[in-house]
């Protein structure tokens, strides 16, 4: 459990819904408010604009393509992001987003939550 998650709004984008549900359940168990999970970039972008999340956990490949436009929008708005990828080269991702932790699937959801925790300064 990551106590700093309490009350934080976390956007989840993950197209494997079993994985997404498990991650959502973990975040909810930490008393975070889950925005999503979304399997598509389009839906996630709309939700991000509406709900101004405190942080995001993103799968790199979603149903409608690479998560890049969503990640860039969030990071530009100063919203911390943790990546979880099954295919993309982590090195490449780390190069593009040096401040965002990158995990390779499968990663336990609590590890993702723990990584996001220190980045969400305001809600801690």
């Amino acid at each position: 459990m990551s106590p700093c998650m309490r009350g934080a709004r976390i956007l989840v984008a993950e197209d494997n819904m079993l994985v997404a549900m498990d991650l959502a359940a973990e975040l909810e168990a930490c008393d975070a408010e889950v925005i999503g999970p979304f399997a598509r970039i389009g839906e996630a972008l709309t939700a991000a604009a509406e709900h101004s999340p405190d942080g995001a956990i993103l799968d790199v490949n979603l149903l409608d393509g690479e998560v890049t436009p969503l990640a860039e929008k969030l990071l530009a708005a100063g919203i911390p992001v943790v990546f979880c990828t099954g295919v993309a080269l982590p090195k490449d991702l780390r190069g593009r987003y040096p401040d965002s932790p990158v995990f390779i699937k499968p990663t336990p959801p609590e590890r993702l939550a723990e990584a996001l925790c220190p980045l969400i300064g305001g809600a801690a």
């Binding site: 494997n16 973990e26 295919v87 499968p106």
Partner: peptide, 21 residues
């Protein structure tokens, strides 16, 4: 195949997670 294997392991991990919960 690589993607599927990773994805399946992730799925199994999630199944373990929510079954436990």
């Amino acid at each position: 195949l690589h993607h599927r294997v990773k994805n399946n392991l992730a799925t199994v991990q999630s199944i373990v997670g929510f079954t436990l919960r």
